[in-house]
């Protein structure tokens, strides 16, 4: 399958051809620009492509959702970005959005409606879990078979929106041992990136938050940490590197795991 060239459909082109894609893949700023998160984007696109999902991306017409601005307290910058995005989305008559970023997921799902943006929004782990349940996506264990995986709940998927089972359902399909950290699900510990912390240094303290979380990861003795958020991915990857454990614990997004297991 990897021999074929994949072409990513862009909304403007697809619309010009008179087609309306079923689902918009909201790539997000991290997914578009961050080198690590780009690999997740690519993995997810490979899955969409392999399953012949009718999707498109906005590409240059996508702007940041405004999450870091609003959470830092800058409502003006948030409103500018959000209203611009809603105009774009409404112009294309978008109905359903899938995104690999829980921050984008939360804000489009919960905060855009009041500004006139009403869409069905799903996180990619929900999207994948639905495909598995519907029998459209089968996942072989591949390199994960018999290995141990721990899942890091991102705050904006978990507590913020109470999505705890979908990512775990996908991981279950990998034939690996799923082990939970000391703090998980409703009590999951933040990676330290939310609330625009990603974009500044920690305030003075005795430890970085990602180090605290990485300690919990290591306590499980898992071979893999599965994540569903580009920022958690960065934070935990950094934490593991600081402890020089990157050869023993791999930090992977659930989309990457599914793609790898299926040889995509």
């Amino acid at each position: 399958m990897s021999d074929t060239t994949i072409k990513v459909p862009v909304m403007a082109d697809v619309t010009a051809e008179g087609k309306t894609p079923e689902v918009l893949f909201w790539t997000g700023c991290a997914g578009s620009f961050d080198q690590r998160a780009q690999r997740v984007t690519i993995a997810f696109v490979k899955i969409l492509n392999a399953l012949n999902v009718d999707y498109a991306v906005l590409g240059p017409e996508e702007a940041c959702t405004g999450d870091p601005a609003r959470r830092a307290g800058n409502e003006f910058v948030f409103q500018m970005l959000a209203q611009q995005n809603i105009m774009t989305l409404n112009t294309y008559n978008v109905k359903k959005i899938v995104t690999t970023c829980p921050h984008c997921f939360n804000i489009i799902k919960n905060e855009y409606p009041e500004l006139g943006g009403n869409y069905e929004v799903v996180h990619h782990t929900q999207f994948l879990s639905e495909l598995i349940k519907a029998g459209k996506l089968t996942v072989q264990g591949g390199e994960f078979k018999g290995k141990t995986i721990t899942f890091h709940d991102s705050c904006y998927l978990g507590r913020a929106n109470e999505v705890y089972e979908a990512p775990r359902d996908v991981l279950e399909a990998l034939d690996a041992d799923l082990i939970e950290m000391k703090s998980c699900k409703t009590r999951g510990l933040c990676c330290g990136a939310g609330g625009a912390q990603m974009f500044k240094e920690d305030e003075p303290g005795h430890k970085r938050i990602n180090q605290e979380r990485t300690d919990e990861v290591m306590e499980t003795g898992a071979n893999y940490v599965a994540v569903g958020c580009p920022f958690c991915n960065t934070m935990i990857t950094d934490g593991v590197k600081e402890k020089d454990r990157q050869d023993y614990i791999k930090v992977l997004d659930i989309a990457e795991m599914v793609a790898k297991a299926n040889g995509l």
């Binding site: 790539t27 620009f33 240059p60 974009f199």
Partner: peptide, 27 residues
């Protein structure tokens, strides 16, 4: 650092200093 982020968001529609035209570079 937040001011820098705000400026990037206003100018580039992304929290980092990347050009909007490069949003598909990953492809």
């Amino acid at each position: 650092e937040w001011n820098t982020m705000f400026t990037n968001l206003e100018n580039n529609q992304a929290p980092w200093q990347f050009a909007q035209s490069e949003r598909l570079k990953w492809t």
